[in-house]
Design a binder for these strands. Structure first.
Lengths: 119, 119
DNA sequence: GACGTACTACGATGCCTATCGTACGAGCCG
DNA sequence: CGGCTCGTACGATAGGCATCGTAGTACGTC
């Protein structure tokens, strides 16, 4: 069962520790539709995804910016894997800090999305 | 029992309908520390409070701005009562739109505040 | 009517941020 | 090595927003 520990590349990225994660920062990060969409997709898939996987309606450089905001606010963890940069929700950390928050937010986002599509 | 139905003044203020309330807007409104503090106090008191009741660390005009953001995002309802402007959480509306969200957010905010004061 | 209080409107300012294009670096593959 | 893909860095830009001070309006009270 050599699950191929996916060889995290050399370059490391700075992440906030749990103590450094601020609720205001998380809320601000999720208050942007593009970033909320990214987080929703990450949650839906349940696994780490490369930046290129997402179909965001912005340019590549803007996309990079949004991923950085998510990382610096403590919402996602980013790790290089070859040329790809894998993104994973920091579910456990967020759950420990703000119990139930992520799930409630995701549910709220889904409800709103359903609301909109019920034309 | 003339509970003095508090005579809402003539001037009316525009509020978003429930359909118009956007999750992103709510999150953005609450991502500011001043506004989050206002909402926390409103929730703690449980009743409508005049703007002047709050001890915010900003000027009066900035305070007005924050209350407007909260109103326009659908988080609070504002009604004039004489010279005072009463502010109330739109608990029921928010609960209907995003079940559990407000309470989860308030709990998260409290936890974070406690974290900080545990020196 | 005169005064005080509560809040607003307006204009200014400086910062933050979402957006882009272009040029570049890091790793894979042939 | 040469090229390809993925993502970054940088600079520019335009709009948003938190902040303030001042001047003004609405309302209650004397």
């Amino acid at each position: 069962m050599t699950t191929a520990a996916p060889v995290p590349s050399s370059r490391e990225l700075p992440h906030p520790t749990c103590e450094e994660i601020r609720l205001e920062g998380v809320l601000h990060a999720l208050s942007d539709p593009v970033r909320l969409g990214i987080v929703r997709e990450l949650a839906a898939e349940g696994v780490a995804l490369a930046c290129s996987h997402f179909d965001v309606p912005v340019s590549k450089s803007t996309s990079t910016h949004h991923f950085r905001v998510l990382r610096e606010s403590g919402v996602i963890r980013q790790v290089y894997e070859g040329t790809a940069k894998m993104n994973a929700l920091r579910r456990d950390d967020l759950e420990a800090l703000f119990p139930g928050l992520l799930d409630t937010l995701l549910t709220a986002a889904t409800r709103q999305a359903d609301r909109g599509s019920e034309v």
